[in-house]
Amino acid sequence: MRSAMSLIELVFTIVIMGIVVMSLPLILTQVQRNDAFAMQQEAILAAKAKIGNILTYEWDHNSYDLTASRSFVLTTVSPDTELDCNGTTFRRLGHVNADSRRKCSATGASASAIGADEGDGGNFTDIDDFNGLPPTTLVVTAGEDAGTLDYIFDLNLTTSINYAEDNATYSSNGTLNDFTFNPNNAPATPTNIKVISVTVSGGDQNITLRAFTCNIGESMLLPSRPYQ
């Protein structure tokens, strides 16, 4: 007796194959979404790592005093005049009156302009030395160093550092009454806040992360690492 496929078996086979073929576009779409999400996470991680590295440097070229082996609060031209340093006590509003705590520079050192400083010799000594550098490129290609990844990426990291416009008013007893902060406005003169912006672009990715760091010097109880 010859074996053969019955009509009902043929129908079931066609239906099953049809379901499989119909599901392929959905599977491919989900794979693309997963790869896009993975690239987005790679971009965020790259920007976060870049910001973390920048934040290990001094707030300003003039912050660190080699003689005193510590970082001081610098003089700025911020509209926060209530936060100006006292030329006698070398402290400002909110400072604890103790030698080991944060204080202003006794030499009257001022915050410098954004960008590389004279005397750096091409070295990175503060966070704004990273401003305007050529973009950093991160590339992972299939068969090279992608390992088991099912996607490739080509990302560019662009870093910019700016002063942020800040303005605060205080009462006579030192209580903060009002604070206006505008990170999108970059004044030409130094303020007490710097904005680190890292933008990651590549393909359809365009992600910007920001971090804010302030002119607060350092406490000798929690010293930062000195730069070379």
Rank of each mutant, 00 (worst) to 15 (best):
I44H: 01
E58K: 10
V21G: 11
S69N: 11
E58M: 07
Y57F: 06
G52E: 15
K50V: 00
I51M: 09
E42F: 04
Y64T: 00
L66I: 05
H61V: 00
S69R: 02
S69A: 11
S71Y: 00
N62C: 05
M22E: 04
P25H: 07
A43L: 06
A46Q: 09
Q41P: 01
T67I: 02
M22K: 04
Q41G: 08
N62Q: 11
E42K: 04
S63R: 04
D35T: 05
T56V: 06
T56Q: 12
D35S: 09
A36C: 04
D65I: 02
L28G: 07
S23N: 11
M39E: 15
T29M: 03
Q41W: 05
I27E: 13
N53Q: 14
D35K: 13
L45W: 09
F37S: 14
A49M: 09
I19E: 14
A38W: 05
A36P: 01
R33S: 15
R70N: 10
M39L: 10
S71K: 08
V21A: 15
Q32K: 13
F37P: 00
Y57E: 09
Q40E: 15
A43Y: 06
L28P: 01
V31F: 15
D35A: 10
L26F: 12
Q40F: 02
Q32N: 15
S23W: 03
R33N: 14
I27G: 08
Q40M: 12
P25W: 10
A46C: 05
G52Q: 10
R70F: 03
L26T: 11
Q41K: 09
W59R: 00
I54E: 06
F37H: 12
P25N: 10
M39A: 12
I27W: 12
E58Q: 15
K48G: 03
